[in-house]
Design a protein around this nucleic acid. Structure first.
Lengths: 223, 223
DNA sequence: GGGTTATTTAAAAACTTTTTTAAAAAAAAT
DNA sequence: ATTTTTTTTAAAAAAGTTTTTAAATAACCC
């Protein structure tokens, strides 16, 4: 899951990034409305956290631009207490929900969970394949009921593969969703992580993660 | 499906080629407007991706040349943020759509899908012939409901034959559509691939792919 | 903050699969 | 019957993937 934070206060941004990354999210940041709007329109995020008072462009306007570009990424507005935002105003700009600052991290997670829980998306939280169990929410992977420790990148990668189960995902798509924008597109870090994942999941025969030469990788999930 | 990329930045070209090829496209490249215009006028592409700021010839002019040569290949312009391109300006040069750099691969694919989705072209995505099922989009071929693995070249070749079903396609036409411009025109690689395809599809009697001596091959699709 | 440990990325070598080439055998055309 | 074209097989070359190792970066702990 990849999040974009559009927020001018660097310390809020840092706190958010830290907390979100510890929950296994991949985070991109923008310090002003222009950059934020631009990143939102040119990347695929799962959620956008949008401060309402921003330099260069106001949150409401950023939101409008994103929607006009045809992106329907869920947007959660972070508004300060003083601003009186009516639900009507919000709905008009295409925002999905808002949360008043200051808020607890648990509160934020709950709101994020709520706006990403859409009927069309398969949001299963626990997958079992043979003796392997993967819990997306708690980020715990078990094999023969024994916990397997995965690093953040390993988990993000596995999560992305699972969300596209039985479909081939190309290296480009993986990079766009699991890595942030600073990654070199010709790096072989994906391969290294795939290999570590297969090792940790004891997937020597590639039954779980198979390579499709020239196309990418595929997570095989049957029942 | 064959794509021409006209773009001077070699790293953008490389990234695009990589991503497109992993989705089963055949890619030709040009680093300047002159070469690009020439290739576009002398070959058959399904889509042309055209950078607007180019050495030797500007994108708009390249586009005009292609249209004047009688080619109506869909053209998607890759423009940078700074350039203020009005839709009117674009329409006047014969461009089909434009996308602002940088863009996500999903975005590009969506635009490409949009401009190639023309009513006259039979754009069926799933074909079934007896016990064989071919899904163009997911690039999966099944026989008796069991997946048959085809390599990229095998799939491209099959796709081209299917798109010209019940018509004879010559070796030259196949080379032009399924191979990129670096292929040796006297190579017999087509024959090898046809043979591998027939083997994988269990087409021993050539009911599916028949040879028309002196003319080429024909994919027989009834019902 | 500095040192330690863990994670991620990069580079290169080993290995696998795909694609192309070449050449002989079989089939079709003149 | 001979020439041309197509099919088949095998092997070389190219492309792509895996694995190992090392370096860089980030996270952790005192």
């Amino acid at each position: 899951m990849k999040i974009l934070i559009i927020e001018d206060d660097i310390s809020i941004r840092n706190v958010l990034r830290l907390s979100l990354e510890s929950k296994g999210f991949v985070v991109d940041e923008a310090g002003d409305g222009d950059t934020g709007s631009y990143l939102a329109r040119t990347n695929s995020y799962d959620v956008i956290l949008l401060d309402n008072i921003l330099p260069k462009k106001l949150g409401g306007f950023v939101c409008k631009e994103i929607r006009e570009a045809g992106k329907n990424t869920p947007i959660l507005v972070l508004s300060s207490k003083q601003e009186v935002l009516t639900k009507v105003q919000l709905l008009n700009t295409g925002v999905d929900d808002y949360i008043t600052k200051p808020f607890s991290f648990e509160e934020l997670m709950a709101r994020m969970r709520a706006i990403t829980r859409r009927p069309n998306v398969l949001m299963r939280q626990i997958y079992t394949f043979k003796d392997i169990e993967i819990n997306i929410h708690s980020q715990i992977v078990k094999r023969k009921n024994k916990e397997i420790y995965l690093t953040r990148k390993e988990f993000s990668l596995l999560e992305y593969l699972i969300k596209n189960q039985n479909n081939v995902v190309s290296r480009g798509e993986i990079l766009e969703h699991v890595w942030d924008m600073s990654i070199d597109p010709f790096s072989n870090t994906i391969e290294t992580h795939i290999m570590n994942l297969r090792k940790k999941l004891h997937d020597t025969k590639r039954l779980l993660i198979s390579s499709i030469p020239g196309r990418g990788y595929k997570f095989n999930f049957k029942q």
